[in-house]
Design a protein around this nucleic acid. Structure first.
Lengths: 138, 138
DNA sequence: CCTGTTATTGCAACTTTTTGCAATAAGGAG
DNA sequence: CTCCTTATTGCAAAAAGTTGCAATAACAGG
């Protein structure tokens, strides 16, 4: 199943269009699997679509995030990185060496329930990044 | 107790210096209580210290955050805001109307313990922002 | 109170991200 | 296949944030 076949219907269903730009960006994120900065996405996507603009990358990433096809995450200080939507997870990052590990969302379900009870909010997605010191650096 | 008296010793103890710039910025954050964007901090601090530079504001906020005098928080999309260090808390933000509420850190202690057990990390500070839909918007 | 060390600032240039607007093209309708 | 609507893109300019480096000024010590 190609990226186009997989993602185009998801966009059409919401009244949006699949374009070469969006496809290229989704393709990059899909095959990388990693979280990438806008600059990295631009660099990689440029190979398959040389006419691509940085402006478009920024706008597309934000658009895809709003529509749940990619997950934005706050890394380090204030800069966003994006990752193709897959399983729900969060990140745990070491303040010392910078290494990261994934945290299954399952670990947070209790907390989410508690928060919904006490706040009245209905919690939607949220990608969280926890900070700490990893075993190697302690 | 003035801002200077309160914060200068904290900096000196770590080998850093108290300067008019840092004082002005701390003063603004202290009396606002709210979380402010770097631009807002600059705007307000300029009143008491007209020679202040934006560069210095950015650098000072990052510096103060590293030393625990202020807490950085990721708001909305990727932009950092800062708040004077006070009680430990997190934020819960409505995706629809944008309103926010604070979440006591106490609610997260169980989760933190669980994370430390399963990951081996030692969790330090981390300001989290959860997203959801508030009661009014549901 | 003066002196020296070095943390801190300001400037200027640069990188990253955002925005307005006119031109383009995706995709449903005929 | 062609036309039409309007979502989407690219360009250019602005705004936001970062960095290197020389000049400045905290503040410890004499």
């Amino acid at each position: 199943m190609s990226c186009a076949d997989e993602y185009a219907p998801q966009l059409r269903a919401r009244g949006y269009r699949m374009t070469p730009q969006r496809l290229a960006i989704l393709h990059v994120l899909h095959h990388s699997g990693e979280h990438l900065s806008p600059a990295k996405v631009y660099e990689k996507a440029l190979v398959e679509l040389p006419s691509l603009t940085e402006t478009t990358v920024y706008r597309t990433l934000e658009f895809l995030a709003e529509n749940g096809l990619v997950h934005p995450a706050h890394m380090g200080s204030g800069h966003l990185v994006y990752q193709i939507a897959g399983h729900d997870h969060h990140h745990l990052k070491c303040r010392v060496c910078g290494s990261e590990m994934e945290v299954e969302h399952a670990l947070l379900t209790d907390l989410y329930k508690k928060l919904e009870r006490t706040s009245g909010y209905h919690l939607t997605d949220s990608h969280l990044t926890f900070f700490g010191v990893c075993p190697d650096c302690q």
